[in-house]
Amino acid sequence: MKYNLQTGSHTVYALQYHFVTVTKYRATVLTNDICERIGEIANDLSEDFGVSIQSVNGGQDHVHVLFTAKPTTDMTKFINSFKGVSSRKIRKEYPEVKQVLEDSFWQPGYFLATTGQVSVDVLMEYVEEQ
């Protein structure tokens, strides 16, 4: 089994996450330029939270973010900061969006899942063979 490992002072880890958030009312306001800007915002925030953004992409009404994190990363703070900062900046920098989504840019909820570098079946087999 091979992992892309990261290390801390007393830890070795491989933590990858898939995060999805949706625009308020599923408004179709995300253009390629806005998605690109959201990626820049995510990268700007990543240093403050000890995460590394791997990919940002999406559709007209949602964004996917694939990132790695440290075991000490506070996911709730990172996600809330991402949503808050990106909402403010996008509505300020793209006035056409503010006409559609005046008060809120994102839905309150989101999707977050851990991802693996190997499948659950491979892990199960590995554990059973130990």
Rank of each mutant, 00 (worst) to 15 (best):
Q54E: 13
A69L: 04
D44E: 14
E36A: 14
L101V: 05
D121F: 04
A69V: 05
T7W: 08
S81H: 14
T68C: 07
K77N: 15
V29G: 02
R26G: 07
E128M: 11
N4K: 14
D44S: 10
N43T: 12
T68W: 00
Q60V: 04
G8H: 05
V122M: 07
Q117C: 07
A42V: 04
D121Y: 04
D74A: 15
T114P: 00
G109P: 02
T72G: 07
F78L: 12
M75T: 13
P108A: 06
T68P: 01
T28L: 15
T114Q: 05
K89E: 15
E96N: 12
T114V: 03
T21W: 06
R88I: 12
V120F: 07
P108W: 01
V65C: 07
K98E: 14
F49V: 06
L112A: 00
K70V: 07
L101H: 04
I79K: 10
L5T: 12
E93L: 14
L5V: 12
K2C: 08
M124A: 13
F111V: 07
E128T: 10
V20R: 04
G109N: 10
E128I: 07
A113W: 03
R26D: 07
K24N: 10
Q99R: 14
L123P: 02
M75Q: 14
S87I: 08
F49N: 03
D121M: 06
